[in-house]
Design a protein around this nucleic acid. Structure first.
Lengths: 214, 214
DNA sequence: ACAAAAGCTGACCATTTAGTCTAGTATTTA
DNA sequence: TAAATACTAGACTAAATGGTCAGCTTTTGT
């Protein structure tokens, strides 16, 4: 069910680029930027190391290309929500979208987590400003919902942090989760976890759970 | 308010060891095991590199010593809770303890997060087994609470994952949080965030919030 | 068909890295 | 106070790493 590319009519270069990006995402997720090795990315992509550096001029530019890709993942329907939308629907869908990313792109989530934990040295001011203004806009909408009595009073910042923390946890800490559950999460498990999380967050905000998440 | 050692009567060796451990925790939290550099740990500890390798025979043994320390942090009063305890009290206190760790030992939390994200290559079978049996015990207690009608029906695994995810997020993603809030979290902010989180989780479990967390 | 562009890669290099060695200086102990 | 232990530190090394280069082959557009 995860989105995947149509492999017809793509040049050998595009194919290799995508092989390299996939391999690199895995390696960076496993070892972070400093810890990842170009040779191991090459091995995983089944290409000689020189080939990796042919397509991406340096380890850093490969990392940055990947990071840019990942930041685009964060876009969602919640970005355009306004005060006239139904908060229960919007938030439930946002949570579900986040959970879907954790299921389909766990390594992207891990790479992003590492970048933040390591002090976000590669996220430039432009991204940070953009991110901050996105946040300001969303906080504003949530505040208006609260003012209209649609939502229990709560700090919108903490609400969003909680949504990110819980949903991303299923990707970032999947090793621990699988260990403790004694089995890995199937698609059905993810659906159950999503409903569980929607219920927790929405109930916590004084909202009722939309029927499709019950 | 964070716990700290009494520096009287400690030998120069103990002092240096602790300097090194502090410096290493920071470096490992910033770069992960592979990415951290012994030289930078030494610089941060204000000791020559050779000195670091005098006290800890290798980068790996330093990392392991630190990791062992950190695993002990996870111990809490929740470990001994039984079905006869009040779930609201116990869970609220557990959440508060976790938040306190995020506030006082953010680098420890980050190091642990990196270890898990990177596939837990240094957590041995003994720890994993111990952790799994701890989990089984706690899941059991929560289930009994649910059977007794003290707690709304929910999967105890997800409940614990949610508590960890949200509380650790304040340490692991502090850079992002500070950026988006436009200021860093004070002790007061942490108290507020703790109460907010206790309310979310407990309400989500159908529990009422103990007065000290309101 | 053919030239230009794109793709490929082994050999190589400068730098960085964890860790050693040796030779010393403080500090503790008997 | 002498011997033993604990600590300090510069010089060094072997291995690993990111990256270059020059010459090769394959693909593509006309």
């Amino acid at each position: 069910m995860c989105a995947s590319k149509n492999y017809k009519e793509i040049s050998i270069g595009e194919l290799n680029r995508s092989k390299i990006l996939n391999a690199a995402e895995k390696e960076f997720a496993l070892h972070g930027f400093k810890g990842a090795r170009v040779q191991q990315i090459a091995d995983r992509a089944e290409l000689p190391k020189t080939n990796v550096l042919y397509y991406f001029k340096s380890k850093e530019s490969l990392y940055l290309a990947l990071l840019e890709d990942i930041l685009r993942l964060w876009n969602s329907r919640f970005d355009e929500a306004t005060v006239s939308d139904d908060p229960a629907e919007v938030l439930a869908q946002y949570i579900a979208d986040k959970m879907e990313i954790s299921r389909c792109r766990p390594d992207a989530s891990k790479m992003f987590a590492l970048e933040i934990i390591n002090g976000a040295p590669n996220l430039d001011t432009f991204f940070k400003d953009q991110h901050a203004s996105w946040m300001a806009g969303r906080v504003d909408v949530i505040k208006q919902w609260i003012d209209q009595g649609k939502l229990a009073a709560t700090d919108p910042h903490y609400l969003l942090f909680n949504i990110w923390a819980t949903s991303q946890h299923y990707a970032d800490f999947s090793i621990q989760i699988n260990e403790l559950r004694g089995k890995s999460m199937t698609q059905t498990d993810f659906a159950e976890a999503t409903n569980n999380l929607v219920k927790l967050i929405l109930t916590g905000c004084g909202l009722s759970v939309p029927t499709e998440f019950e």
